[in-house]
Design a protein around this nucleic acid. Structure first.
Lengths: 346, 346
DNA sequence: TGTTAGCACTCTAAATACGAGAGTGCCAGA
DNA sequence: TCTGGCACTCTCGTATTTAGAGTGCTAACA
């Protein structure tokens, strides 16, 4: 098995044109068509020798003896990492994106939808955007409304203008007045603080000697505890899934079914996308790299997006491994930045 | 063209067994297998004669000359309307359904999800539940929170314990105090009234001579007008779409794509389901009957569900025309009743 | 008059064959 | 080290064949 060091300039260029060619027209690429490349003044025979080397290195492979060559996952990986020449977006395109993301801005949920739609519309693949999840999100306002029995409807608004609501089960019956009082107390003490901080404060309060605080405050804190105990569930907005049904590499019904099941189960996808939260810039999973069977024949191009310099979510594009990376990568990059900007300007 | 009156007992019984047979094993049914039916003591030749009549009436048809017969849409329709022997659910099954629908009841959104999941899990097809939409839903509580500029976040809670939030654009800047005042006014005047009634009242207030009311009330009513002007968007919860990918009659990628696009567009599906709001009991669309191309090869079995005897939504099952109607129909019927009951008991 | 047996006919689906075309690997020579 | 040449392999599309299923029709039968 030859190592990467065996790759000279020429082999790399050949790999590059092969991958580009394959991405362009979806057919296995033979030595003849490559010999036609103007920058590659070699005979088909020589090219065959080089291709044999590339195949030994596991960068390309032949579907069968008399078909051309197709990039393997490693081949795509090398291509994306070091051979790719990305096409930056034109400023007119950028303006257009900005417009379509900002027009009629009606709250955070809406702009996420738009971003997802944008990703899928432009790439003709599937677009995905995770809901923003900030550690430093601050509480703006909280309110309790009584329901039947010991159930209480909690509504709280965060500084992202997101409205969360949740039903909690309290240990005893509270009167509307008590609930009002608890809300007043919590608003006065916790408003403007981050949810993480609030969780800390709650634990401290509960540890404190109970004699020093009155019952109303204990009740309030108990309820706040129930409210903020677990994070709101992770979720994402997916668009253009149906675009994926057009690709021949995903036309196998069993595969497609697994993929769509993964989409509706959400858990796996979330987990996968979460891995991009830490990474800087655009991150790419090619084929089996993702580690999820359902995505074996897909690539994900993702980027995290930020509000006020804090990374809060991930967006990206899902498509077949054979996709136009040189266009998708800068596009995902820009969209992430635009989405962050759109969410900032509030 | 023969009329339905030509159908004697025997032809009907033959059609019935043919449809049952076809639903059971998915193959076109020939005269030989039908002649094996113990209740149908006829030779294949006679059966062929009867089948020729049924074909003339458009109830069955032959995919090609040497295949058996397959029910047409009209055939299914006749079968469902007058030949079907529904299997009522056993009471143990019913208990089981009830349990899975009511366990850990955490708000209306949750139970709708469960119902949809239940529909798809039991039938191995797709389940759908529209969000309840009550004309008589009453306002419980309304609140305004200022955002940037003239944007105001409105939160209102209805007596179904549903929390709605919406961003409205006001004509001028309001101070937090003004917003508080407006909310107080609206809560005192409108709480407990139905949204429809509120819309009426708002229009009346706005028509009234402005001199007689103070500016604060006018502002409040204006904002309420913006809030309640249009209905919250219709939506539904869909589950088990991927189950549909297993059926051979939907294995055509183009059809499947159209179907899934219809699902994500939602509008058409909503419109179709809305037609069931008026009808009593279970309603069925077979194949092209729905009038939507995407559903040409599907059947829908639907039923409306009610809260406090008011019809508020529709649920149903989507699958291939070849489905076990005799089981699906009673199941959808019962699920609708159970869902209504679950939403009532709050 | 309704039912049945017989039979020729049609159509599908699966198996088989076959040639064209594409692309390869390898060898020998420049 | 590169290149031309050549035999080889494999796919893909197109016929061709065959077996089987099911039909429609006709003539005989009860």
């Amino acid at each position: 098995m030859a190592s990467n060091q065996d790759l000279n300039e020429r082999s790399l260029y050949l790999l590059k044109t092969l991958v580009e060619r394959y991405i362009h027209d979806g057919q296995p690429v033979g030595s003849r068509v490559l010999s036609k490349d103007p920058n590659l003044k070699l005979s088909p025979a020589t090219i065959r020798n080089v291709m044999a080397d590339l195949e030994d290195m596991g960068l390309i492979h032949s579907p069968h003896t008399s078909a051309g060559r197709v990039p393997t996952v490693s081949g795509y990986r090398l291509f994306v990492n070091s051979l790719l020449t990305v096409k930056p977006l034109e400023s007119s395109e950028l303006d257009q994106l900005q417009n379509s993301l900002l027009t009629e801005y009606d709250g955070p949920g809406d702009v996420l939808n738009k971003a997802s739609r944008l990703l899928s519309d432009v790439t003709k693949m599937a677009g995905v955007v995770t809901l923003p999840r900030r550690e430093t999100v601050t509480l703006r306002h909280i309110e309790f409304l009584p329901m039947s029995n010991t159930r209480v409807l909690v509504i709280f608004v965060t500084d992202g203008q997101e409205v969360h609501n949740k039903i909690i089960h309290t240990d005893r019956l509270y009167s509307p007045a008590e609930l009002q009082q608890a809300a007043n107390y919590l608003n006065s003490v916790f408003a403007g603080r981050s949810l993480a901080k609030i969780r800390d404060l709650i634990l401290k309060e509960m540890d404190q000697d109970r004699r020093q605080v009155n019952q109303g405050m204990i009740d309030a804190v108990n309820m706040a505890q129930l409210t903020f105990a677990q994070q709101p569930k992770d979720d994402y907005v997916l668009s253009g899934e149906t675009n994926l049904m057009g690709f021949s590499e995903l036309s196998d019904m069993e595969r497609l079914k697994q993929l769509f099941e993964a989409f509706s189960q959400k858990r796996g996808v979330i987990h996968l996308l979460d891995q991009c939260l830490l990474a800087e810039g655009v991150q790419i999973f090619i084929g089996e790299e993702s580690g999820y069977r359902a995505f074996d024949h897909c690539s994900l191009v993702t980027s995290s997006y930020s509000i006020n310099d804090e990374v809060v979510g991930v967006l990206g594009v899902i498509g077949p491994t054979r996709m136009a990376y040189e266009k998708v990568i800068p596009f995902v990059d820009v969209t992430a930045k635009l989405l962050g900007a759109a969410l900032n300007s509030k």
